[in-house]
Amino acid sequence: MALVRVISSDGAAFLVSQRLAKRSGKLKTEIETFRKSSDNSEAQPEIRIVTIRAEILRLVLQWLQQHQNDPVLPANQNEQDGRGDAEMGQSQWDRDFLAPMDLGIVMELILAANHLEVKGLLDITCKLVESKITGRTVDEIRTAFKLKSDFKGNEEEQTRLENRWCVEN
């Protein structure tokens, strides 16, 4: 089985099959680039991911491992309104996988899935955050994400006026 070493920003190395790694668009490209530039076809690619730390990279690879036999992208079962990908693609395993994570980890996972081009993982993590960020007031969002208003002077009032101009009839 062809393997690839994937190294996190904090130096942890994961040895995974190339078949699994290629489920990530980014890793697939890196492996193919390595193949083209390497004289030795048997050489083992080594890929450093400088923007993802070990704990997060491990979660991504774990999710990929679980979903290695899935179609590349889950079917959209409800095309009437464009929704449905994440709900339909999310298994009990996914729910258990995400359940213990705090919001900070989920946000790191979104960034990692986006960087590594793992669409399915991106779908389910974004879906998790969606409920905390859509249809909420500014104060509710600030509370959920532990944000503070750092607007200076009349910036907040200006922003409110600008927004109002966009939506008022």
Partner: peptide
């Protein structure tokens, strides 16, 4: 950092969309 990603990933029909983007904008400077 996650707002642009959410902007592409979150899918909505138009009638649900009205103020989401603009509400995010009013949260803080970042």
């Amino acid at each position: 950092l996650i707002l642009p990603i959410l902007g592409e990933q979150i899918k909505m029909i138009c009638c649900h969309v009205k103020n989401t983007f603009l509400t995010w904008r009013a949260v803080n400077r970042g």
